[in-house]
Design a protein around this nucleic acid. Structure first.
Lengths: 187, 187
DNA sequence: GTCTATAAATGGATAGAC
DNA sequence: GTCTATCCATTTATAGAC
């Protein structure tokens, strides 16, 4: 993929996590990159295309984080902490929140193909977290009631919610929530 | 408050929870109520005013739910269930999510006074839930690690996140998350 | 309180030159 | 690939008549 396309995605990702999908414009991208609006349209014909590309990017980022963990031979808990760490870096800015969180919040206002990609993103994340939980429970490292699937939804919901809250009430809230969650999870 | 003003707030609340603040317009309100856009502006001069009124409404709804619980002499757990029940009715439509969730998600794109009211709404909700947790723990009804404040953030984050998730993945997700959360909370 | 009409700004998107 | 110029729809908001 060309360099310019990546640059646009970088800025768009920042703006999406900061403000939401409908609250950033081609004008914003144009301003940030110092190129004309029409030039942005050259790379992403419609905002729907841009949204789809962003979703694919988020999926790739998730997959690469999971791959790193696997390469290191991380335990389930270490993998949990790796995901938390990424959340921390988002919360630290006091402006960003989770890709999943924003996309869900605006779900009914998203263009159709972005909605579909959001579904995929969530399904993939859920699978990944469920696998982690199953591994941790089997190893006697993690302990929780109910199914791995339900617990995975709990983890995702809590993380998304906590990142949203930390935007209004500061990064310490994310940290506090994660500590509570972690302590309820460790065997 | 006049009847028309209430009608506008009813529709606006529905649209806000369905689509988000920036994704509904005076035109939508005008269409839904069968009156001219200018007539809506007569009641709420600016969208910022409308947003502020909605926030105040959410705070009043929270307070009245808490007052009902108190009048019934609800236990902490019964009060938790009452809050869950309200979440259930939102999740059931498959379209709505939590007021707090939407407002946080769009926080950086909200008009200044709506942002301030969002802060108030969250502070009030947090106080209310923290009080419930303290009461439940003292009565030996609830059990959790850490401070009541941190646990209150966990509850709020999880509820918000779960309502968002249930919009994408269906009401059963909200139910599943709440069950997990509740089982970790009961002494 | 409600209407029609309209302003002023911004949104996404396209045409066509360089 | 990038630009200028422009189109068209939509948005918030106001003016002024009824």
């Amino acid at each position: 993929m060309s360099n310019r396309k990546e640059q646009i995605l970088d800025v768009a990702q920042d703006l999406l996590l900061r403000r939401g999908f409908s609250a950033f414009s081609y004008q914003d991208l144009s301003d940030a990159l110092g190129i004309a609006k029409a030039s942005v349209h050259h790379h992403f014909a419609s905002k729907e295309d841009l949204g789809v590309a962003l979703c694919e990017r988020f999926m790739a980022q998730n997959a690469s984080l999971a791959a790193e963990c696997e390469a290191r031979g991380d335990s389930a808990l270490a993998m949990f902490d790796a995901f938390v760490e990424r959340g921390n870096s988002l919360a630290a800015t006091g402006e960003h929140c989770c890709p999943g969180g924003v996309l869900q919040a605006e779900y009914n206002a998203l263009p159709p193909r972005v909605r579909e990609k959001t579904n995929e993103l969530f399904a993939a994340s859920h699978r990944m977290i469920e696998a982690m939980l199953a591994r941790g429970r089997e190893a006697g490292e993690l302990s929780f009631a109910g199914s791995t699937s339900d617990q995975a939804w709990l983890l995702m919901s809590t993380m998304h919610g906590a990142l949203l809250s930390s935007r209004v009430h500061g990064a310490p809230v994310f940290d506090a929530v994660v500590r509570q969650l972690r302590s309820s999870l460790v065997a």
